[in-house]
Design a protein around this nucleic acid. Sequence first.
DNA 1: CAGTTACGCTACGACCCGTAGCGAAAGGCC
DNA 2: GGCCTTTCGCTACGGGTCGTAGCGTAACTG
Lengths: 209, 209
Amino acid sequence: MCSRTTSRSRTGRPRSLEADAAILEATRAALVELGWSKLTMGDVASRAKVAKTTLYRRWAGKNELVVDAVAVLFDELELPDLGSLQADIEHVVLQFAALLERPETRTALMAVVAESTRDQPLRERIRLSIVDRQKRLVLEGRQRAQARGELPAGRDPLATDATDDLIFDVIAGAVVHRALVSAEPVDEAWVQRFTALLIGGLGAAAAAS
Amino acid sequence: MCSRTTSRSRTGRPRSLEADAAILEATRAALVELGWSKLTMGDVASRAKVAKTTLYRRWAGKNELVVDAVAVLFDELELPDLGSLQADIEHVVLQFAALLERPETRTALMAVVAESTRDQPLRERIRLSIVDRQKRLVLEGRQRAQARGELPAGRDPLATDATDDLIFDVIAGAVVHRALVSAEPVDEAWVQRFTALLIGGLGAAAAAS
DNA sequence: CAGTTACGCTACGACCCGTAGCGAAAGGCC
DNA sequence: GGCCTTTCGCTACGGGTCGTAGCGTAACTG
C-alpha cells in the first residue's frame, strides 16, 4: 500500500484546487443555461477560464464531469428527526423534489443515468457519489422508526436489506417519475397521499408477518 | 376543417410507407448496437438505405425519431384478467421489466426523458405515445379490482384520478428506478415484495376512508 | 399532359471532439 | 540556490456530425 490518500505524487506542480472548483461551478452554470445536450467541454473550459486540455486531464469526458458537478448538490439532503416516520418521509421527499426542480439536476440526472446503461464505470461512479448518498437516508429513517416502535425490529438482516432497497426504489422512483416523466408538481398534497400509501403498505406488511 | 385525417395533401407523390418502417427499424437496430449517444442520423439513414434528407423531412431530429421508434414497443404491454389484483399487478410489472431489459428501451427511455426536461413539444410527444399508453393499464386494473370488490368504489372522481396518477408514478417509477438506477434485477421475488407493499398500502388507505 | 410533392444524391459551412506539441509556471528534493 | 517533475495555458490539427441548400428524377393527381 503506497500511502497516497490525498495526492497521487509527492513531487511536481500540484493541481490547482481553485481550477477544480471553478470547473465544477462552470459545469453547473452551463447545465442551467444550455442543458445537458448542448453543453460542451469547450464551453465549460472558457466559462471556468481554464484550458480545455485541463479538463481532459481530470475527467475522461462530459459524463464523468457532470456526475461530479451534480453530486455535491445531493449533500444537502438531510434527515432531521421530526418525531414520526410520516413526518420524516414527507420531509425528505419534499427535499428531494426541490432538488429535482433545479434545472441542473433536472437535465443532468436522467441523462447520466441513460449513459450509464452502456457504461459500467460510469454507473459505478453514479452509485458511489449519488445513489448511495440517498440510500443512507432510507437506512437511517428505518432504524429511527424501529427505535420509536413504529416498525417491528427485523429479525432477518438479509430481508431487512432487501426491504431497504425496495423502499428506496419506491420512494426515489416515484418522486423522479412524478417530477420528470409525468412532469407534474410534487406538492404537499401529493406527498401526503404518497406517504400515506407507503406507510400503509409497511404497516400491512408488518401485520402480515 | 379540411378533412385530412390520413394524408396532408391529396396531390403529389405520397410518402413511402416502406421508408417509414425501414427507418424506425434501423433506428432500433442502431440503438441496440450503438446506444443513444453514439447513434447518428447519418448512420440510421444508411442502415435504412435512405437519404439523410429524407429523415429530416419527417423528424425534426434524433429525439423525435427515437421516441417514435421506441413507442411501438410499448404496444405489447397488456393487462389480461388473471383473477386478482395482485396477479394483475405482478404480471404487468414483469412485462414492463422485460421491456426495460431490452437494450433499445434501456438506452433510449431515460435519454429522451432527459431531453424532454428542456423541450416541451418533445415531452408532449412522449406523453402521448408512451406514457399515456401505460397509464391506461392502471385505470383498467383499478376498475377491474373495483368490479371484483377488491377495492372500494370511489365516490369522488377527482380523488380517483389523483389516486390513479399516484399509483402509476409509484409502479412505473419503482420499476424504472430498480432496473436503471439501482441496476438490479426486477425478478419475481422483488415483484412479489413490491406488489405486497402496494396492495397493503391501498388496503390501508381504503380502510382509513 | 401539367402540376405537385417526395426522393436520392452531393456538397457545404459550422461546430465539437479529443489529442499532440510547445514553452512557461509551480511545487518538492538535495 | 539549482534540478527534477508535474501541471498549466495555448495553438493547431484530423476526424466526425450537424442541418441545409440545390439539383435532377420519380411518383401520383386531375
